[in-house]
Design a protein around this nucleic acid. Structure first.
Lengths: 142, 142
DNA sequence: TATTGTTATACTCTATAACTATA
DNA sequence: TATAGTTATAGAGTATAACAATA
């Protein structure tokens, strides 16, 4: 197959960010198969772990997902016995999310695995490059 | 709404790359509405422009999309009169893609618009930062 | 009146299997 | 037999509208 001139697209930030994120995501999904967790599942569990009592609404804001789509996500994790819904202490409308003991164990292990996958995905980058890359990406989206 | 501790996720390369690419993509889609082109439509047209006679298969490889999904994409652009299929000179199975005059005009304008959007999306980055960001992203996915 | 969580639903994107015609 | 393009289809992911309960 003949070579393709992709120089224009490769000069675009969006193209590069998308390609990189697809590669990293693919690697993540593959490595996280042991835990049967998708990237969003993992993000939800990790956020609940570090923010016990977090609400659906806060998850939506933190992950840029929409309320109707968080319902099935949380229900599935609840059905697997990984997290629990508890009534919110100050707001009768809201529901606080908490990890079960099993959820705590699995999430901790999944976070360790995520960090290992991270190191593999960034194998071509030294520590300084990686720090710089993070900082610049955050400058774009924050 | 209370603040959420996202420090763990923010320490992950995949999370940052995805967030950044979503922001850039959103900005791109919004600004490209004048041309009625999605990100992939734009990428296809731009690749055809710089690689006249490119095949579906080459598009798939260059953009990480699958053959069945390129069919409707190309058909729609063909129906809008932006590109044409021509028999491949050396391979009877393949079809070469070429821009029409209208496609050439629109793609050139869309590329200019894309570069303008690019500058807006990277407004928080100076020239040096932007170059560095590109280089590091390519180190991840190439 | 505004917000939280929810249901139902639709639309887009992406993925797999199988066919045809050429090589 | 292998590859290019295609069809049909299934599954994620993402989107909007509307509702009940609570603020």
């Amino acid at each position: 197959m003949q070579a393709v001139d992709s120089r224009f697209l490769e000069s675009m930030l969006g193209y590069n960010a998308r390609r990189a994120s697809l590669v990293i995501l693919g690697h993540f999904v593959e490595g996280m198969a042991d835990f049967a967790l998708g990237p969003v599942d993992f993000s939800v569990l990790s956020l609940v772990r570090h923010n016990p009592g977090i609400t659906s609404r806060q998850l939506c804001a933190a992950l840029s997902i929409l309320p109707p789509n968080v319902v099935g996500l949380v229900s599935a994790l609840e059905q697997r016995g990984l997290l629990k819904r508890k009534p919110h202490p100050h707001d009768g409308r809201a529901v606080g999310l908490h990890l079960s003991a099993a959820g705590e164990t699995l999430t901790k292990a999944a976070e360790a695995k995520a960090e290992a996958l991270e190191n593999e995905a960034a194998a071509n980058l030294n520590a300084s490059d990686r720090k710089t890359l993070m900082r610049l990406l955050q400058k774009v989206y924050l």
